[in-house]
Amino acid sequence: MPKRKDISLNERQFILSLLKDSQRLDGRAIDQFRKVDLKFGDSLGHAEVQLGKTRLVVRVSAEVSKPYEDRPYEGTFIITTDVSSMASPLFENNRSSDDEMLMTRLIEKAIRRSNALDLESLCIVAGKSCWMIRADVHYLSYDGGLVDASCIGVIAALMHFRRPDTSIDGDQTIIHSVEERVPVPLSILHVPICVTFSFFKVDEVPSSTENPVAAIPGSGQSANGVPTADDSAILVIDATAQEEALRHSELTITINKNRDICQIAKPGGYSVEALTILECANKAYKIATNITDLIYRRLKEDESKRNAGNLVPLTAENER
């Protein structure tokens, strides 16, 4: 973030001592994810996510374009994440800081690189035309957890979106309007969910006399197989903006319901016991399952609302 949130020593002390007692300012447990509020808009592919005070809107759109030369059988998919000062005065417009760059990369890796969207199904004529899917993420308010919230938003919006149907007549590609043919849902291969863990050092800033590496040998209390063996770090799930500003390192795990880890990123910072990371991955799996279920539930609710007037539910899916 361009300008760091300036947090007074008093607040820092207070938040850290609360965390030490496993308490948090918003009354959550330290390993509790905030309640996810997911809503869909009137148009298809419009999702709104609220995670505590963090809010964002994702809009998915599609247009016909030319595939990349090296990938003639695939459509294109772009995610734009532009954190503006709309979200918080801490962000500057049109300038992305290092942290924002990391965030964009993370979302891209979580959804695009993990092949959540089947790009081959977006091909219309190989090498000539394909669908270009765009997901624009707009941040409305910031209170930590941007990566987690964006990931939920993008994937939910993709699942909600319907693209116009196409057919090929000789050399011509016909794009059928919504009135003409029922629009087709995108083919989503899996639902990746990001969970961010924050780590706090228990003893603040090591004094120059002691050697932190020597003081935390792997053979210490940690080796006796206790799951929460890491006495030197406090693990916090889904940090708020304040906690994000104070944390010593972070770890983002992207996982789906099929127990596939799509991505893990721990970009340096305070070291964490390997066992803790495994423990985090298991916690992430549980959270991801809950969130995936929530997304499906909300999609179903939206579907039934849309089909309320119809006798037969409109669908373009093939009966398989």
Binding site: R113, V213, G218, R259, I261, I264, K266, G268, G269, V272
Partner: peptide, 16 residues
């Protein structure tokens, strides 16, 4: 030589 991980990066799918 610790069991502590300072940096970790995984960019493709791995079973949990």
């Amino acid at each position: 030589k610790t069991e502590k991980v300072s940096m970790l990066l995984l960019e493709s799918k791995v079973p949990l």
